[in-house]
Computed example of a mutant assay.
Amino acid sequence: MSNSSCSSNQLFLQPLWDLSRTFVQSAFFPVIFAITTYVGFCLPFVVLDALYPWVPALRRYKIHPDFSPSAGQLLPCLKLTFYQHVMFVFPVTLLHRVCSPDNLPLDAPGLPELVCHVVICLLLFDAEFFAWHLLHHKVPWLYRTFHKVHHQNSLSFALATQYLSAWELFSLGFFDMVNVTLLGCHPLTVLVFHVVNIWLSVEDHSGYDFPWSTHRLVPFGWYGGVVHHDLHHSHFTCNFSPYFTHWDKLLGTLR
């Protein structure tokens, strides 16, 4: 790629990185970013669930038309998310910041580099989570001790996405950290990857199958999406990959 091409790609993202760099330097940024992004993505689905009884047109997009989460289901999920981020995620990110302070680059990444790294991180995360997820379903002690919390809500809704044990939350965070570190991802790429990853996980648990849902936009059935993951919550013995379908196809666990 020519120098002029690299330069134009970097300039495309430079204003975004200049703005982001101001916030990324704060020790409070990772936990605030994680919570606000997650809750922000969940909120539209919470509103849809609130409107659902009065808007019959939504019924055609609901995977389980007779189910709408109650306040008694939503509030514990929200409470657990805030509790774990404040009590666990924040101390860990603060310790990491103190032990290895970031030397943030002045230049933004090129757009092809950012897109390539985000796609690779998603594929790596999908493979790691598939192995972790399958193991926690096949070993009864692991399931009872760590993963059963997430399956307490058998019918999915957006705020149940992060209804997890602390071990599961840290495991998924560890996969994220290892992948971006091994690839040497630019900090802006890391932010974009986290946004995409959070959105896909919330969509997977949303309970809504829209014409514009991700699994309908990705061709050839490569991406499972919300319907794929809902079957996992219903049957427990299939569809262990969070996003793509190739690992379940290879191991015969695709339904």
Rank of each mutant, 00 (worst) to 15 (best):
N3I: 09
N3V: 11
S4W: 06
S8C: 09
N9D: 12
L11D: 12
F12Y: 10
F12C: 13
W17N: 01
W17M: 02
W17K: 01
S20D: 02
R21L: 10
R21S: 14
F23T: 08
A27K: 13
A27M: 11
F29T: 03
I32E: 11
T36N: 08
V39R: 00
G40A: 08
G40Y: 07
G40V: 07
D49T: 04
A50E: 03
W54R: 11
V55A: 11
V55H: 09
P56W: 04
R59A: 13
R59W: 05
I63S: 04
I63R: 05
D66F: 05
F67Q: 05
S68C: 13
P69V: 03
A71F: 12
C77F: 03
C77S: 11
K79E: 10
K79M: 09
Y83K: 12
Q84P: 02
V86G: 03
V86I: 15
M87A: 14
L94I: 01
L95I: 15
V98R: 13
V98D: 07
V98G: 02
C99R: 14
S100R: 15
N103T: 15
L104F: 15
A108Y: 00
E113C: 08
L114W: 00
H117Q: 13
L123P: 00
L123C: 12
L124G: 08
F125L: 10
E128N: 11
F129Q: 08
F130R: 01
H133I: 05
H133A: 05
H136C: 14
H137Y: 08
L142I: 09
R144A: 12
T145R: 13
F146K: 02
H147P: 04
V149G: 00
V149L: 11
H150F: 07
N153G: 05
S156A: 11
F157G: 00
L159M: 14
T161P: 02
T161S: 12
L164T: 03
E168A: 06
L169D: 07
F174H: 10
D176V: 14
M177K: 13
N179K: 04
N179I: 09
T181R: 12
L183Q: 08
C185M: 09
H186E: 04
L188I: 06
V190R: 03
V190D: 00
L191I: 14
F193G: 00
H194F: 09
S206R: 01
G207D: 01
T214W: 06
R216N: 15
F220H: 12
H228T: 03
H228G: 00
L231G: 01
H233I: 04
S234N: 07
H235G: 02
C238M: 06
C238V: 12
S241H: 01
F244R: 01
F244N: 01
T245V: 05
H246G: 03
W247V: 07
T253V: 08
